[in-house]
Design a protein around this nucleic acid. Structure first.
Length: 496
RNA sequence: GGCGGCAUAGCCAAGUGGUAAGGCAGAGGUCUGCAAAACCUCCAUCCCCCAGUUCGAAUCUGGGUGCCGCCUCCA
């Protein structure tokens, strides 16, 4: 079986073949750190986290690099508004980023280059572009000459003559507010270097003090950290044009090589059918969402239910559905912790128990194969999740039978295999159930007391004082203790 | 104006030529004093519309309709 990925550059699904067998160089265009991350960022981060996890699971050694854009007008504006500095603002939101991602169980990248740490590489690249005739200085700024690059538009599939300048509605052709407009030879040219403005951070350069434009940092970081050509370049589909188009234009004339072999783009998160974005004001931050009680794994499921290239709609109903879905999956994932001991598994107390890295599963089993087939098809996560649910429901059922009947017909080792397969595959999607989620720390119930109450309830039932019997049941329920009446007048209890 | 995408049950969603995965929600039954839990069962003759190709179409082709994204802030 081969992994196929949809490549924006070629507009089709292609068999993934890395530059170097067994190794993958992957770069994800990360966030501009001027505010807390919202659900849209969560989607991108989770999807590329899963791409990376899946590649690793498929046996590749993945080198995963993600940048932080920490030089930007929006960061500066925020710093000004707060009477703070650009550095202080970006540090704060980088910290917040790490906090949010840890909660979402997004693995850390191998490296997190920042624009402010890549100035040498940026200046070198601009210098090379200038030497080769792709860039020109203009009163302290340096611009990229779009018409000098014949392949311009290859990624986004557009021609310069077909594009409307300012169609995005933010700049107008004759806009006098755009101070760069008169300096550009062509309206489509973009800034590689911006001359310093008074009171703003600036770095020395051959063109005078200033700061880099937005697109150049990614070209420079990829080159510095991963080399001239990488395997996978990922990001939101709103970055295809101009950001990724410009990255190609900046890198390829200098190196003479493709910047990336596979360009992968995720779809947007929508609210009421429209893209979630800062400018529309319809965004929800990750931390707000999680602080309001949404389980991070439920949020993952929300994102995984749809294919990564399609838009997904953020609604209360969808979130509630994901929350309930997670409860189902979680029961399957916790099976080993709840029943392993009673099934005679001897290692349930070991520190490595439940660790997917220590588990060996049957890679040829039908379920694993189905999972892999789905994921091999351009990361069809919703197909993969379906396999997880089938396994989780089966385990939940067995667990329920164990709770209610005390025994099961399925043999212990086979159950162990089923459980481990679920845990391992869930881990590939970054879905993990913490054992601690299960046990409420509020009250540790005293078994003798409960037994006494159960006996008391049985007596009340016998005397047909059902109201009194129900009060006892409700009282225990409030403490998280669920009573199970079984045939023959027996009552058992377990924690919720 | 240019480029691209999407349309499948009450909701979300996979499936891209062989007769509709999965999730959420819902219904009936068993059990029960009633519940809860559990167990069993059910839940799209059909995939936006029209025409065509084919033995066979949700899937391919042509034409519509509707919605969305990008066109120098963007994940």
């Amino acid at each position: 079986m081969t992994l196929k990925l949809y490549n924006t550059l070629t507009r089709c699904k292609q068999t993934f073949v890395p530059l170097e067998p067994g190794h993958v160089k992957m770069y994800y265009c990360g966030v501009t750190v001027y505010d807390y991350c919202h659900l849209g960022h969560a989607r991108a981060c989770i999807i590329w986290d899963i791409a990376r996890r899946y590649l690793s699971w498929r046996g590749y050694t993945v080198r995963y690099v993600q940048n932080f854009t920490d030089i930007d007008d929006k960061i500066l504006n925020r710093a000004k508004a707060e009477g703070s500095s650009m550095q202080a603002v970006s540090e704060r939101f980088i910290q917040a980023y790490f906090e949010d991602m840890a909660r979402l169980n997004v693995m850390e990248a191998d490296e997190y280059p920042r624009a402010t740490h890549t100035l040498d590489g940026i200046k070198r690249l601009i210098h090379d572009l200038e030497q080769k005739g792709y860039a020109y200085p203009a009163s302290g700024d340096v611009y990229y000459s779009v018409r000098a690059f014949h392949n311009y538009g290859q990624l986004s599939g557009r021609k310069l003559e077909d594009m409307q300048v300012g169609a995005g509605g933010r700049t107008e052709v004759t806009d006098t507010d755009d101070p760069e407009a008169p300096k550009k030879k062509d309206p489509f040219d973009f800034a590689l270097w911006k001359a310093a403005k008074p009171g703003e951070p600036a770095w020395d350069s051959a063109w005078g003090a200033g700061r880099p434009g937005w697109h150049i940092e990614c070209s420079a970081m990829v080159r510095d950290r991963l080399g001239d050509t990488i395997d996978i370049h990922a990001g939101g589909n709103d970055l295809i044009f101009p950001h990724h188009e410009n990255e190609i234009a900046q890198s390829e004339p200098v190196t003479g090589k493709p910047l990336a072999n596979y360009w992968l783009h995720n779809g947007m998160v929508n609210v009421a059918g429209q893209k979630m974005s800062k400018s529309l004001g319809n965004f929800t931050t990750i931390r707000n969402l999680l602080d309001s009680g949404l389980n991070p794994m439920a949020l993952r499921l929300f994102i995984l239910q749809a294919h990564y290239r399609k838009p997904i709609d953020f609604t209360d109903e969808a979130i509630a559905s994901s929350q309930n879905s997670w409860e189902t999956l979680k029961e399957g994932l916790l099976f080993g912790y709840k029943f392993g001991h009673s099934l005679g598994w001897i290692d349930t107390k070991d520190s490595s128990f439940g660790d997917p890295a220590a588990m060996r599963i049957d890679a040829d089993s039908e379920l694993v194969q189905r999972f892999q087939t789905a994921m091999d098809d351009d990361l069809n996560t919703s197909g993969g999740v379906a396999v997880l649910f089938e396994m989780a429901k089966e385990l939940r059922k067995t667990g329920n039978i164990l709770t209610h009947a005390g025994k099961t017909d399925t043999d212990s080792q086979s159950l162990r295999q089923q459980w481990q397969t679920l845990v391992v595959l869930a881990q590939v999607l970054g879905l993990e159930a913490k054992q601690t989620e299960e046990t409420p720390s509020t009250t540790s119930p005293v078994p003798e007391k409960i037994e006494a109450l159960i006996e008391q309830r049985a007596a009340e039932k016998k005397a047909k004082n059902f109201a009194a019997a129900d009060r006892i049941r409700d009282q225990l329920k409030a403490q998280g203790i669920v009573l199970v009446d079984k045939p023959g007048g027996l009552t058992e209890w377990h924690l919720e």
